[in-house]
Amino acid sequence: MPRARISLKPLVYGEHPDQAADLFLPATGPGPAVPLVLFFHGGFWRAEHDRRHAAGFARALAAQSGCAVASVEYRRVGGGGGWPVTLTDTAEAVDRLPHLAAQAAPGHVDPARVVYAGHSAGGHLALWAALRHRVPDGAPGRTETPPAVLGVLALAPTADLAWADELGSGRGAVAAFLGGGREQVPDRYAAADPAALGVPAGRTVVVHGSLDEALPVAMARRYAARVGATLHELPGAGHFDVIDPDSAAWPVVGEALRTVVAGAGV
């Protein structure tokens, strides 16, 4: 993994303490501004899991890719989040953070070249953020036009909320997030489930381990086939290998990001 000097700048996109992000900036000399990756951490949308556990990943991704990486916090279940607040925080973050990052690092961050990325529940949020033009009218976070995003890097994402709820993933995390199962709150699933919303804006690349113990790789396979995403299935990899810079998955993650930034296949 390349070693590069990384600087850290705090960003605030709202009034709540969890409406914040850590901006990791690679050292850059004269030249064009670099793309920005907005990374959403996982933890099944629960308050006990925050962005601190993904700090090493975000720093390493900035060093490896040469992109700026903003590790995004958001309100979570048990801390004022859940439906609809987690989604509205996500929408606020993707709307505001590119320009805030460009202001924090003048000439170094290009707010017009943005990638949404996330792991596990954060992968769900990254996919949903690129689908805001497809959510039903009146639903939280809806936009009338497709988000201006290069694409999505989804790492072991919760890409199918209804399926994850049926599996009881994360000890009932989906029902806790949305306030019930699909039969109890069907409108919320219709507005929040990437598997029900169609093709995200930009290019979507999914990376998922074949031995993922939290979310089955079959979920990634079905989702990728449904929306035409590129899927990198990692033999022998578990749920957290995709955010471990010391794992065998790391080169694949880096190449997947380059694919999204370039907008070309591998």
Rank of each mutant, 00 (worst) to 15 (best):
R134V: 00
H99G: 14
A117C: 03
A148M: 01
R132E: 09
L100E: 01
G118F: 02
A102G: 15
P146W: 02
L127R: 03
G141L: 05
T88Y: 05
T143S: 15
H133Q: 11
W128V: 05
P106Y: 10
L150I: 03
D137P: 12
P111T: 09
T88S: 15
G151Q: 08
A117N: 02
A91D: 09
V152Y: 03
L100P: 07
T145D: 15
L125W: 05
G141M: 08
G78H: 07
V149H: 08
A105M: 03
W128K: 02
D95I: 00
S120M: 04
S120F: 05
G123H: 03
A91F: 04
R142P: 12
P147T: 04
V149L: 07
G122D: 13
A102S: 15
G122R: 13
G79H: 05
P146T: 05
P140K: 10
L131T: 07
A104S: 14
P146G: 08
D110F: 10
R113H: 14
D137M: 07
G123N: 03
T145L: 14
Q103L: 15
D95M: 02
L153R: 12
P84C: 06
L125G: 06
P111M: 11
R132V: 09
G107H: 09
T143K: 04
H108P: 00
S120L: 05
R142D: 10
A156W: 00
T90F: 03
G82W: 02
R96E: 02
D110T: 09
T88N: 08
A101L: 03
V152I: 06
T88H: 08
L131E: 15
H108S: 15
T88C: 07
A154K: 01
A154C: 03
A93L: 12
D89K: 13
H119R: 08
V149R: 07
V109T: 11
R134H: 10
R96P: 04
D95W: 01
P146S: 12
A101P: 02
A104V: 12
A102Q: 12
L87G: 11
H99S: 15
L131N: 07
H133F: 11
A117T: 03
V152M: 03
R96G: 02
E92V: 00
L125I: 04
A126V: 05
V149E: 05
G122N: 13
A126Q: 03
T143Q: 14
W128E: 02
W83Y: 15
D89H: 12
G107Q: 10
A156N: 00
A117W: 01
S120E: 04
A102R: 11
A156D: 01
A104I: 11
Y116E: 00
A112M: 02
G151E: 05
L155I: 05
A156G: 09
Y116V: 04
E144P: 00
G122K: 10
A130N: 06
A129P: 01
G138K: 09
P146F: 06
D89W: 09
V152A: 08
G123F: 01
D110A: 14
V109N: 08
V115M: 10
L100K: 04
P98T: 10
P98G: 12
G107F: 06
